[in-house]
Simulated assay, not measured.
Amino acid sequence: MTKVILKYLSIILTIYLLSMLIHTIYIGDTLSLLIMGLVLLIINLLLKPFLLLITLPLSILTLGLFTFIVNAWTILIADHFVSGVNMGGFLDSLLASFIIVILHHLLRDMNKPSKHY
């Protein structure tokens, strides 16, 4: 359960920070941001495994880098369903997918208990 919450937090935090830095990413209000995070989380849970399976040969050829393209596609799909958020296009979604992955891993590592030997 905490993995899902961390993923949700990394999604909404990244989209918010990118909207502050990049003028083509627009967030109408806080509720739209929260809905965007929820829609993207649901798409990642339901649709993303299917997309990764379809694009598996390309992912193998690019040594896994094509998964960032799939992440950008899922962001664009979620952007289509939420009216109060505009991600600005494919390149902005690709940048968001990079930062979401990095931020998610940072949050996940902070949540792990430290090992003392």
Rank of each mutant, 00 (worst) to 15 (best):
A96D: 05
P57F: 09
P113H: 13
V70W: 03
L46Q: 01
I102W: 10
D29Y: 05
K115R: 12
T67L: 02
G64F: 04
V85I: 12
I69C: 05
L45T: 04
T2I: 15
I102P: 01
S97N: 01
Y117T: 03
L33A: 02
L46Y: 06
M87N: 10
S114K: 15
N111F: 14
I100Q: 07
L34D: 05
F90Q: 12
P113I: 15
S32V: 08
F68A: 10
I77G: 06
L58K: 09
D92M: 07
P49A: 08
L21V: 04
T2W: 12
I69S: 10
S19G: 06
A72F: 03
A78C: 05
M87R: 05
I22D: 07
Y26C: 04
P113Q: 13
W73G: 15
S10R: 02
I60V: 13
K48W: 01
F50R: 07
W73S: 14
V85H: 00
L51G: 00
Y8P: 07
L65Y: 07
H104K: 11
L53P: 02
I35T: 10
I102R: 03
L18G: 01
G89D: 14
V82D: 03
V82W: 01
T30F: 05
L17N: 10
L41H: 02
L56C: 08
F81L: 15
L34N: 02
L107H: 01
F66H: 09
S19E: 02
G28W: 00
F98N: 02
G89V: 06
I69H: 02
L21W: 02
Y8D: 08
L107Y: 07
L58S: 14
N86G: 09
I42N: 03
D79E: 07
N111H: 14
H116A: 11
S59M: 12
S83W: 01
L103N: 03
N111K: 14
I15Y: 03
L34S: 06
L91I: 09
M36A: 06
L6V: 03
F98T: 11
F81E: 10
I77R: 09
